[in-house]
Design a protein around this nucleic acid. Structure first.
Lengths: 232, 232
DNA sequence: ATGCTGTAAAGATCAGACGTTTGAGGTCAG
DNA sequence: CTGACCTCAAACGTCTGATCTTTACAGCAT
């Protein structure tokens, strides 16, 4: 079985990074040189670079050069969001189920580890929502709220995973449903309960409320998908 | 800010898939045609296709054509393993911490949901390990054991995530340490305990043993990384 | 010192040619 | 009629080389 030279190039560049020859932030030789060194044409090399660039391993800057990214988990994992966007309907439930596992765990960790300043900021975010928020505001606020908590877990991988698992697309769809059902106030109360538990430094309570929160969304979505009405 | 035409192409192809214009398994127009339709050259289009191919969204077959993959979660998420390979040292702990959250949850689900046949197969796998297994055999067996359990959760996303989180690279490194420390028998006993709990259909017990199992590895790794001895 | 400007370097894009693989259809022997 | 083999067109794979755009940086003017 012949292996395309482009795939080989991907592996070689990956190897250079994993082996430490190319450190995070390091600059790659210019395309022409690297192509010669790896024994392929510039066109083929560019395909490899583009692929590694999509998953945020390489950072290509026109007029400057190509660099290895910081390789921080959040960078590499946010490519996950891209992938999640492709899933629809039934598989969304699987994603949500995983979120129901991860998010409560992250919330519990956050209740123990977040600094008082970060908790105060969380309060600010929650209180900043007006009485008659638009759909757009709801989504943004919800996203920021959950992201701050995820970040508060102190685990970058966990944080990125939680964020990536509920991509913008998914979140938008869910919120549309929530508002149509007039469940905005209930969601808001749950956010308040989660924050209160964090403010009181009670991980178990925070975890429980987070579970209730995600499970609520999950239940609603399960019902919605079950009925043939909402194909979209 | 000008966006590269290649990135545009990626977005457009993605949009075609998400919108349903291109169904899973569908065949794309041939490169020349698609390039013309998207208004760019074949070279640039190929870069886009290569990137989408790396994350398993497209499947390119020489001499045949380019197809949209099944888009099953396991396909898209196994690209995660590729990403995980780039992480080393400290970040590995973050990954392991997430695994300590996900794997017990998956194990509990498996204890409830796995069919008797699947449980029997799990028993076969565990018993197939000889008395003096090689390092290679240990890794393979361990991987198969945990993968069967993850699959038993019935959640494809959860399964892929658990698998991807402990890539071959990471697993190999950990096992090397475990064997050097003579902790093989202890690991084996824990596998046995997990399986027993599943066979008895006791999710809570299975979850607890899984937690103990992963936490043990985590603890060992934390200690190892702490001491400056093992830079590799 | 500050701001502007020119220039070289590096990536972005394109066009076209040629190689390689594969699926499909046709042919012929059994 | 069926199956193995062959042929070939279609589609991806790769390379070359030219041209455009953007960027960093140094040198100049204020």
């Amino acid at each position: 079985m012949r292996v395309p030279v482009t795939d080989e190039a991907i592996d070689k560049i990956k190897a250079m990074i994993v082996s430490g020859e190319l450190r995070p932030g390091a600059r790659l030789p210019k395309e022409a040189d690297l192509a010669e060194r790896l024994g392929l044409s510039r066109s083929s090399l560019r395909e490899a670079v583009k692929a590694l660039s999509l998953i945020r391993v390489l950072d290509v800057r026109q007029g400057d050069g190509t660099y290895v990214t910081s390789l921080e988990p959040d960078l590499l994992l946010d490519a996950l969001g891209f992938v999640v966007d492709f899933h629809q309907d039934n598989t969304v439930l699987d994603f949500l189920e995983v979120r129901r596992i991860l998010e409560p765990a992250a919330t519990a960790m956050a209740a123990s580890l977040m600094s008082d300043e970060d908790i105060a900021r969380l309060r600010t975010v929650l209180d900043s929502l007006g009485d008659e928020p638009t759909l757009e505001e709801l989504i943004t606020n919800d996203l920021e709220f959950h992201q701050l908590i995820a970040a508060g877990s102190g685990n970058a991988v966990l944080c990125s995973l939680v964020e990536g698992l509920s991509g913008p697309t998914t979140r938008a769809r869910i919120w549309r449903g929530v508002t149509e059902e007039g469940a905005v106030s209930r969601t808001r109360e749950q956010h308040e309960a989660i924050l209160s538990a964090i403010e009181s430094r009670r991980p178990d309570l925070a975890q429980a409320w987070a579970t209730v929160h995600v499970a609520g969304v999950e239940q609603w979505l399960r019902k919605t998908l079950g009925s043939p009405v909402s194909a979209l």
